[in-house]
């Protein structure tokens, strides 16, 4: 009798067996959704509290600011534009040590860091640890050492041209190491063309002329294009650095060119994503 009772119940909707089956299915669909989510986020660094740049438009495109523990590429055209990468580094480092890895030739070509200059921009030279390497290859291996230490704030890696060692595999490795330790890497590329890379963001930066009527000219002013962003939209911004508060800000009105939002990036660069 007991058996018959059971078989009868199993036909009903709220029978325990049926319920467990439904639950199982639901569990599965939750799992699938979770997998789907993680697949969508594949290759993206884990979510960490973003660091606001201070420029409202840029921050909104970036989803709150620069994401720590990720690789950010800055392609600078011109000497002054390279400062953009340094400023990102200052922001990303916060109060932690700021490592700057610079091969000898880069120092000779683009100038060595001046601690006074860093202080004038609102950075603290005491945070700065400069690693001078003989070659670009050494710089990359120094970078992987530095990225292993979670107490580092930010790493600025200066690489000129397109060395063979800096391929997709290397940039993927850098980006994974950054994601693991939470150290932000700013890769400053000068005299380089864009290549495929694993960077989360890619910036194309040129220095912008000061405004004609600006008496107080001289605060760094950049024409910065976010030409690649793996987790959001792109943009083109005119960003000024506020040395007093050590943060970016919108250039004063009347700036040289109104920065069009979502302007399509340079086709050549966009292709190399």
């Amino acid at each position: 009798m007991q058996f018959e009772n059971d078989s009868q119940q199993s036909g009903r909707l709220d029978s325990p067996r049926r319920r467990s089956m439904i639950e199982h299915n639901m569990n599965n669909s939750a799992k699938i959704a979770e997998l789907r989510h993680s697949l969508a986020r594949y290759g993206l660094p884990p979510d960490r509290q973003p660091i606001p740049l201070g420029h409202p438009q840029a921050d909104s495109v970036l989803g709150g600011g620069l994401r720590p523990g990720a690789l950010h590429e800055v392609f600078a055209s011109g000497w002054s534009a390279s400062g953009f990468a340094v400023l990102l580094g200052i922001l990303a480092a916060g109060a932690k040590p700021f490592f700057w890895v610079q091969p000898d030739f880069e120092a000779l070509e683009y100038g060595a860091v001046s601690p006074h200059g860093l202080a004038e921009l609102g950075g603290d030279p005491r945070q700065l640890i400069l690693v001078r390497t003989r070659k670009g290859d050494d710089a990359l291996s120094a970078a992987s050492d530095i990225l292993g230490c979670p107490h580092v704030g930010a790493l600025l890696l200066e690489i000129r041209g397109q060395p063979k060692a800096l391929d997709l595999v290397t940039s993927r490795r850098l980006s994974l190491a950054a994601a693991t330790s939470g150290v932000s890497v700013i890769l400053l590329r000068q005299s380089a063309a864009c290549e495929p890379s694993a960077a989360l963001t890619r910036w194309q930066v040129a220095s912008a002329p000061s405004r004609d009527d600006d008496e107080d000219w001289g605060n760094p002013l950049f024409d910065a294009r976010l030409v690649r962003h793996r987790a959001g939209g792109l943009g083109h911004f005119l960003m000024q650095w506020d040395s007093e508060n050590a943060v970016f800000c919108e250039a004063h009105s009347g700036a040289v060119a109104a920065a069009p939002f979502h302007r399509p990036a340079d086709p050549q660069i966009a292709r190399a994503v």
């Binding site: 120092a107 683009y110 060595a112 006074h116 200059g117 004038e120 030279p125």
Partner: peptide, 28 residues
């Protein structure tokens, strides 16, 4: 320098609010 963490001993050349008076990079 990280150990004696106090007020910065790097004197500023600029007045508050002024743009930087010293370059970020110096040629060797």
């Amino acid at each position: 320098t990280y150990a004696n963490w106090g007020p910065s001993n790097w004197p500023l050349k600029r007045l508050p609010g002024d743009p930087p008076r010293r370059p970020l990079r110096l040629l060797e």
